[in-house]
Design a protein around this nucleic acid. Structure first.
Lengths: 210, 210
DNA sequence: TAGATTGTTAATCGATTAACAATC
DNA sequence: TAGATTGTTAATCGATTAACAATC
């Protein structure tokens, strides 16, 4: 399999999700249809899916079930992943409660907080554990993915400890740019940044004046 | 001012945040320094900031306070924005509680849910209001930005109603691709998608095998 | 003047898309 | 065979970055 470019990788989950929006008893779908659901160009769809090697059939389209499997395989969604959440504030708690993960094979197996008054209390049926236990818990429970939901100040240190504990995938909600080794993947979700990009747009609409 | 390319716009909030990470009494900073903090190339920084027109001084660098103002101006962060959150589940509740917004001039002024049993209860000091009131509340309180935190199935209808109610900026947390008119900006934050991109990376690390 | 650092150009790189031959 | 639709090429477009003249 040729190596898949990053831009394509980031669209594969969208295609996978889009397949679920197809009419129930549709066995096959076209790039046009998928493009409409995913909100992208149909040439984009074909190009992206061509990295999965023979994914479709000319003149016919893509087999829905087969494509779904190919996408899951490509994304590594063939087994369960243990997820740890660091930071049990509002955001961390919400993520711990979030039901949307389970359906894709993500299981939250740990929830950490540095605040001793929080440690021991339960969120989403999980006991909040102290930061001191991070390394041990990560190893014991085979944590593959960590979600950082701490304040910005704590984020880099948490990342360092996670990396040292062999975590290679981090989803960072803290408003900070993390420095990590090249073999660690970080995705950032910055809520304020997203809102600020929207305000730029609002300003544009207002006529570029102000 | 030349029109600012999207890729640059999305980095401006990062620069703005990075300025806060500078040593307290530093009046001026270089593109190299900013690049290190923001995690990008220094040529990128200079190119991006050049869209703000005379932002720096050759041989000297960028005036920290001045650049901060320029960035805020460019992003339209010069006044307050009223934000409505649609969907008061785990995610909507967490967002309503999130303190990070206020510092940037975002005020959550409404929180809606379609579940009658939730309507009337309080989250973060705000009463949850019924979906039926959406149009009226948006108009009355001058909602500029809406955050969709509903299940995927409800997202498009909510978006349609928001657009009809003159909301022009939407932050979408629902795992669905929204169709909106060209003058409406949508940013999507899809938690499962982010995790799935990370699992792709984990699979790569595992040796491309499986 | 010498050193520093921006703003800008031009080169490179990668991503998107139109077009169409291949093929069901 | 005629119609449909993929996979792939080549063209286009946009984003990144090295290099350097401008200038403090």
């Amino acid at each position: 399999m040729r190596s898949i470019p990053p831009a394509t990788v980031s669209r594969l989950p969208v295609y996978l999700r889009s397949l679920r929006d197809l009419p129930e008893r549709q066995a096959t779908c076209s790039s046009d249809q998928l493009a409409a659901l995913a909100g992208v160009n149909s040439a984009q769809v074909r190009k992206d899916l061509s990295f999965l090697n023979p994914a479709g059939v000319r003149g016919v389209g893509y087999d829905v079930a087969g494509l779904s499997d190919l996408l899951r395989d490509a994304l590594g969604l063939t087994h369960e992943y243990a997820v740890a959440i660091v930071g049990a504030g509002n955001l961390g708690s919400a993520l711990a409660n979030y039901r949307g993960f389970a359906g894709w094979g993500f299981e939250v197996v740990a929830l950490f907080d540095s605040d001793p008054s929080k440690v021991g209390s339960e969120i989403a049926g999980r006991e909040i554990e102290p930061m001191a236990d991070l390394e041990r818990v990560v190893a014991d429970r085979g944590v593959a993915i960590a979600i950082i939901a701490t304040p910005a100040e704590a984020a880099q240190e948490v990342a360092d400890r996670l990396v040292a504990a062999d975590v290679r995938s981090i989803l960072n909600f803290a408003p900070a740019s993390l420095r990590v080794p090249g073999n660690v993947a970080v995705r950032r979700v910055h809520l304020s940044t997203e809102l600020q990009i929207l305000t730029f747009h609002l300003k544009q609409l207002a006529g570029d004046g102000g």
